[in-house]
Computed example of a mutant assay.
Amino acid sequence: MNKTAVYPPKASVPIRKRGKLFQAYWKNKYLVLLFIPAVIYYILFHYVPIYGILIAFKDYKFSQGIWGSKWVGFDHFKDLFELGSFWEVFRNTFIISTYKLVFGFPAPILLALLLNEVRVIMFKRFVQTVSYLPHFLSWVVLSGLFVQFLSPSIGPINILLQSLGMKPIYFLADPNWFRSVLVATDIWKDIGWGTIVYLAALTSINPELYEASTVDGANRFQNIFYITLPSMAPIITIMFIFAVGRLVNDDFDQVFNMYNSAVYSVGDVLSTYTYRKGLVGMEYSFATAVGLFKNVVAFTLIYITNAIAKRINDYGLW
């Protein structure tokens, strides 16, 4: 070996990489400028407030501030796990979210598949527009509409039931019906918006695959099962992982505007429980402990689901 050989310093390769990276950023400087406001938003409103989780480990007093409040460690979490009311709302949240996952997750996929088979462009656009619109309406507005629509006295459904000789149903005050109402209205509101991702995935499928399968004698259903769904597998897997992570989350706006004391036993969820404890009862530390516990569970679910998905079909978030 030639001992006089000169080798470049180890740091030279990373420096070259950093230089190329800077050149790439400079080449796309206008796109970077568009991206900067989003970065600033997430830093200010999502990362900086993380220090607030310290409240969960302190006996927080508003007058003393976060740093001045007494440190109590895991006392709030111990109280949390010993309360029967917490486990009741946790159970309600998990059950409602599971219903939404089972019935709500496949809904936009099915609608996207149906729209993909429509050949009349004007009708397809009309259905897309109508299905998208509810997503842009707040639950404050929609809850008022549903209260009237499901009313036992003036609601069209109950009027129809009474005309058939049946008794009216108190949909929003009957514990047997309230969860079903939550799931059905949530699907109705977001099914159109959820199809956007899947319709985008459908546009990336090579049309020649359908032409070849048609030549081989495949019908539309066979094309869906053997071409469309396998091609959508990556995006379906990713969206499913996100959906599983939301099993301990809930839509506060929907539940808060539609529930009442008659259905607390089946409709009270973690977000409304945190609202009552934190803002109404001013138990800020306890409410923060509830939120932190929920986020830890959500992250654990995402991590486990991602690991399982990677083993099954090699698709995942990381």
Rank of each mutant, 00 (worst) to 15 (best):
G291D: 07
A307Y: 15
N206V: 07
V39C: 13
Y42W: 13
T214I: 14
L164S: 10
S261Q: 13
S138R: 06
I191C: 01
S151A: 08
I302C: 09
M166A: 15
F35H: 11
Y60K: 00
V6A: 10
Y60A: 00
L182H: 00
Y99Q: 06
N257I: 01
T98I: 14
F45I: 05
F171T: 04
K100H: 05
L292H: 08
Y264M: 10
L111M: 13
G52H: 05
I238M: 09
M166V: 01
G281N: 12
L34I: 11
F57E: 04
I304C: 08
N306T: 09
Y259D: 10
K27S: 11
L182F: 08
A56N: 04
I66Q: 03
S213V: 10
N257C: 11
G65N: 05
N219I: 06
S265P: 02
L145E: 02
V290L: 12
T274K: 09
V147R: 14
L209A: 06
G267Q: 03
F178A: 03
V130P: 00
A200K: 07
L33S: 12
Y7D: 06
P168I: 01
K61M: 11
V102H: 05
Y51E: 12
Y42V: 14
S131K: 00
G104A: 03
F146T: 02
V72A: 07
Q23S: 14
D59R: 07
Y273A: 05
L101A: 06
K29S: 13
D314V: 12
V39P: 07
G84V: 11
I241L: 07
F171D: 03
L247M: 15
T4K: 14
K20M: 11
R179A: 05
K3L: 13
H135V: 09
T274Y: 06
I227Y: 02
R18Y: 14
L31F: 12
I109W: 00
Y210T: 07
Y25D: 02
N306E: 10
L160V: 12
K189W: 04
I50M: 15
T4G: 02
A233Y: 01
G65H: 05
V255H: 03
I191W: 04
N176R: 13
E211G: 06
F178P: 00
